[in-house]
Design a protein around this nucleic acid. Structure first.
Lengths: 198, 198, 198, 198
DNA sequence: TATGAATGAGGGTTCATTCAT
DNA sequence: AATGAATGAACCCTCATTCAT
């Protein structure tokens, strides 16, 4: 329950977090068992409660780790104004790649905080807000079509990220860079062949 | 376990299914309690087992209802070839609207079979396959850009549907028709203002 | 609960008894399920209670059938006095064969009333009493050795019958006649080669 | 499930085994309740599952204890060849007394493993095999009558042991020694007064 | 004579959590 | 910093039995 200051204590705590991450990611909150976590961490059940006050507490801590990570990333990725039209694609792709890279590098946390936890909804909402705000800036600068509702677009983007993360990234089918490229191409240019509006 | 033939039996069974749908949708599989389901259905626990062999069995039946519904819908929505370029948007929007309408009309089932059940992943994959196959037909007919990987596009589309369903549809913010319109506009035309390719 | 007088009723009752005999014999009292009995008798559960007041009631009735049968048999088999020494073996073998024949012809009842029911102990005790009484008569007439405790002998005899019934009779390895012959030979003459007591 | 290593744990485990032995012996498998066992062992139900994985598991362990005990006893009791005719009776009586002593000293286990468990049949078969093999040796050495089927004799002997254990031993009517003496006398010499075969 | 529908009572088992050391 | 031992609180499920028709 205390943050146990000694070195050994800190290590044990980390071990529990890492094992728990794996178990939660794999089985979900309910099917993940404290008994299994401590066994894999080479500890007894009471020891668990030396470091975390409850099963929920460690789960929440993992969610917090995810949220902090992703939010920090997004905050530091605001696209500065004043870009040229053609630079935008590059810039957006770059930000997207960083996000996907983060998800890819933190698969357990992603599974927990981006997919299964009830709060995933809230986290996604936060992302959507940031993205939508970015998009609106560009829109006002005349880069994007005026008639689009940028909140809907942002939700769609997050949806695409979600699905492609689960099906391509976490299954090692595509790299973050490749996924980013395809999303950007699709979202910027759409499906249809541009028909010269004469 | 048996399908109890009389009229009353059938009604009771339906009542259990409807109540269970609500409970599972609201609380998820584990937090949903048989005791609560039967209480809301005005029955005792043993009565439950007259109609379903286990908690899992009724959950699976609900998932099956969802899958059957959505798959049937998709199968009957294949876009026939030979459309004009500008008809496509209409047609796609129409199909999309039907899908969103189904999700909207079956909120409990959607929550269970499209979001929370492990098999949701498989169901989405099936949808993706059908959609991708449709898209590739159009692509070969020259309507869509050759350089797009239609599987990735299909995943993105499903992701967008997923997110917009949860955030707009199930929260009564937008109607199926409106969501469909926006998705189609975004996916067909993209974000950027078409720059006349001189 | 009533003895249901009509013909059809009597038939149904018999069917239930026969099916129950099989189920109880095969699975024992607790593992035998009313649901299974009625299913095999092509009836519904409430119908069962038209003929028997409870699960225990039908079980007891079967035990009663067994006890009545075997006791009647024994009562009618008292060995009349005045036999010659060498006739005794024949006579005893005959009685034994009848008993074994009864057990063999009523396998289900035997399993229930002779092996598994708590009252089997009492039934065996009754048999032992009758047999011991018979044996003591012969003993007093000078046919059997004076130093033997006939109650112990009777218990041993019943034990032999028990085991040989289960292992030889009910498995169709030996016939009642053959089992009777061997038991009589063993119990009358013993294992050892008679050493002429010079 | 685990063998809980500390001293206290081992004691608790033994307590559970002893209490369970009594309950199973008295009521049989189905009527014996875990709730009653733990109450008599001064524990709560979950504690039971610290030591045994299920109700069946502890029952099986008791059966195993019985089987191991009796088989070990029998294995160490093979009658060595080369005995004089008149020593045989002594020797057989001694072995029998040991067996009956074991049954007498382990009444709960005997009830469970020798009487009520389905496997009792198999255990008895094992005993019969060992006994029959012993008997056949003596028979070949000319001590016992050639015309006897020793398997049948062995079954009869086990039957006698069974019945006399239940009716005399477990009811404190006769001692193991006395029961052994009577069985040996009966089985070796038979009922009839040896008629000098002149 | 029989059935469709339902229930009361109880049983085994699991799991997060705590006490005492 | 950690463990052996134990528990409170639930939950799913089964089965004999009954009600109403």
């Amino acid at each position: 329950m205390s943050n146990a200051k000694g070195l050994k204590g800190r290590e044990t705590r980390q071990r529990l977090l890492r094992v728990a991450e794996g178990e939660f990611a794999l089985h979900g909150y309910h099917e993940a068992k404290i008994s299994e976590i401590v066994k894999k961490a080479d500890l007894t059940q009471p020891a668990f409660y030396l470091y975390f006050s409850s099963k929920e507490a460690i789960y929440e801590e993992l969610v917090r780790q995810f949220r902090t990570g992703i939010i920090d990333l997004l905050e530091s990725s605001r696209i500065e104004p004043g870009l040229q039209q053609r630079e935008i694609a590059w810039r957006v792709a770059f930000v997207l790649e960083r996000i996907l890279g983060f998800l890819n590098d933190n698969r357990g946390l992603t599974q927990i905080g981006f997919i299964q936890h009830p709060e995933a909804e809230a986290i996604k909402k936060t992302i959507v807000d940031i993205v939508a705000s970015n998009l609106r800036s560009e829109q006002e600068l005349g880069y994007f079509r005026k008639e689009l509702d940028m909140e809907v677009v942002a939700h769609s983007l997050v949806g695409a990220i979600d699905r492609l993360t689960v099906t391509q990234l976490l299954t090692d089918r595509l790299s973050p860079k490749e996924v980013a490229r395809q999303i950007v191409d699709l979202f910027l240019n759409g499906l249809q062949i541009a028909h010269s509006p004469e």
